[in-house]
Amino acid sequence: MIAAIPAFTEDEAQANAAFEALLWALSRPGQIRTLPAPGESGLIAALIDRECKVFCADPLLMPAVLRTGAEIAEADRADHLFLGEMRDLSVLDQLRLGSDLYPDEGATVIARARLGEGQALRLKGPGIDGSMSLRVSGLPDGLWHKRADLIRYPMGFELILLDGDRLAALPRSTLVEVL
């Protein structure tokens, strides 16, 4: 018999709310959701622990990642990649894309971008009723062609874009058309 309901701690609340936003954004690509706090901290709390191999390009995020106990890995071994501001596409060439047998081994890439301005994209695929448009800027040129080249469904990677406390996600199942 439980005497009282276990406490919904601050950590727990942040991780739960961040994941709720992430799950919504992944289920409905192109829709922008709000995280409980700006930046990657919520996603780190929700997803990362000692079982993860993390590539972290942003030195300011390194303390938060190290605190989780995750193994710091090179991009070709990492399952979660925190790229911060993406400067070039070279890291994408090393991404783990999983296999046809185990698509879940494909990486999750978290990068910063500005949502709602810049390049217009048309998205199609699961989670989208017809098509959806999204404007993104602050990403390197040629990213969308590179992404299309890399993804051989069901192999591929998930791209999560953060703009302050706003988040959009592009799972591998989404077709991106640059307008």
């Binding site: 992430l22 289920s27 997803l47 993860c52 699961p126 989670g127």
Partner: peptide, 15 residues
């Protein structure tokens, strides 16, 4: 919970 979350992310990405 974190393991389940990571798997749910992949499950949604590959319906």
């Amino acid at each position: 919970k974190r393991e389940l979350r990571r798997k749910m992310v992949k499950a949604v990405a590959v319906p």
